[in-house]
Design a protein around this nucleic acid. Structure first.
Lengths: 236, 236
DNA sequence: GTCTATAGTTTGATAGAC
DNA sequence: GTCTATCAAACTATAGAC
């Protein structure tokens, strides 16, 4: 996924927390994060992710990222190989977390409707911790995919795996008779997925609608359309 | 909306078709479009829109646009003030058309469910003719909105007007008893809107799914969740 | 781990000949 | 309406001092 320049990593937890040198560090403009090197790195990735989300990957310059961190642009290259490797880390961290959560939901068992409901909750649940990453993934997907090389091929791999999980549950629900058989599983998956993820455009943490309320609303609307039962029309 | 450099315009139809000079034009690499000046302009906008959609507005250079048209980058500035004015024309043309179609649907009358169904069809109906513009609007919305000045304020104005139309119909449907009253109208509008527009990411003209089939699928799923009737659960 | 300084490209846009 | 030629600015990334 991403090539790291120094040791340690964002997702790796069992790294030596041997404290950052910080021998020089003159004006120390950076607020907190006087912790380990990996914490510092994580902090920089987070700052960059916010900028990428707000202005777009291309429109965000390494100078702006460095400014936000209180250092000069050249200093960023002590932590990262390139601007691309930063966005790489933003996206792969998110996808790693997301897929892990989905797997847990599938392992948890339950009928198709219960699992699918849980997957909706997971989707909305990532809106808050991964808002910036989700925004970047949507807005800059085409651009990143258009870059030469196979660096961002894992985006497709992750997308495919997620699709398999959703479609599998939808088909199971249809086979068990819990979901109406006259809808296209793949198209239905896309419809749900799109409606959830694009919510990142208008979702604001602390706003009128929290992720839990959003989930229940969407689940209600969705299943009273998906579940079998008395309906106004029931096409072949 | 957009400031044009020369006379004539994309949406204006009653323009003198006084034929493009084309006195010099050496190798004339441009395929067809030996018509009026406004046709030539429209053609350039279309080429640019495709590039913007594929790589993103920022990542598309004026040189690439010119290449695609078979001219040099400097020559583009005979037709447009700036790169921004090109994307401006892409988006304003689309929004003009979209809002016009919505207004017709509202004027057509009918009950809320019928009007809303028609609005869904309109949404999917624009996917084919305005695929590039819709893609640009979604991917580069944040960036364009972040630019200094009020040039792209009309994006917000158009968004607001569209929201008023949708929410108005949803509320009317609830008042008339055709739609379940326990859903939030604004949130429901967003859910529908998001699901429709994001389809532009995977929709391909001539593919397995045409806009008409998509519309009916979405309408079926949506209304059997929105319409009143026997339901598994019916929260307060 | 940050700074200074800068190399090497690429970009959007302009001026004037034809 | 396009080309030639070019400018000024901005960009990513690097090298080496501290």
């Amino acid at each position: 996924m991403n090539t790291r320049k120094n040791s340690g990593g964002a997702s790796a937890v069992a790294t030596t927390p041997a404290a950052g040198g910080a021998a020089a560090g003159r004006t120390v403009r950076r607020a907190a994060s006087s912790g380990s090197a990996s914490e510092r790195r994580e902090h920089l990735v987070k700052l960059a992710a916010e900028l990428f989300a707000r202005k777009g990957f291309q429109a965000t310059t390494v100078r702006q990222i460095a400014d936000e961190a209180g250092i000069l642009s050249g200093s960023l290259y002590h932590h990262f190989d390139s601007k691309e490797s930063i966005v790489d880390e933003v996206l792969s961290t998110f996808l790693h977390d997301l897929i892990g959560r989905y797997r847990s939901a599938l392992d948890g068992g339950g009928d198709a409707r219960a699992v699918l409901s849980e997957m909706v909750r997971i989707g909305f649940g990532t809106l808050e911790p991964h808002r910036a990453a989700i925004t970047v993934m949507q807005n800059d997907w085409n651009y990143l995919r258009s870059l030469p090389g196979d660096r961002f091929d894992y985006l497709i791999k992750a997308e495919d795996e997620v699709e398999r999980m959703w479609v599998g549950q939808i088909k199971r629900g249809q086979a068990e008779g819990a979901l109406r058989p006259d809808v296209d599983p793949k198209l239905t998956y896309r419809m749900i997925r799109d409606a959830i993820w694009v919510a990142v455009r208008w979702f604001r943490p602390g706003g009128r609608l929290n992720p839990a309320a959003l989930s229940e609303h969407y689940i209600t609307v969705l299943f009273d359309g998906l579940a079998t039962g008395e309906r106004t029309s029931h096409p072949a």
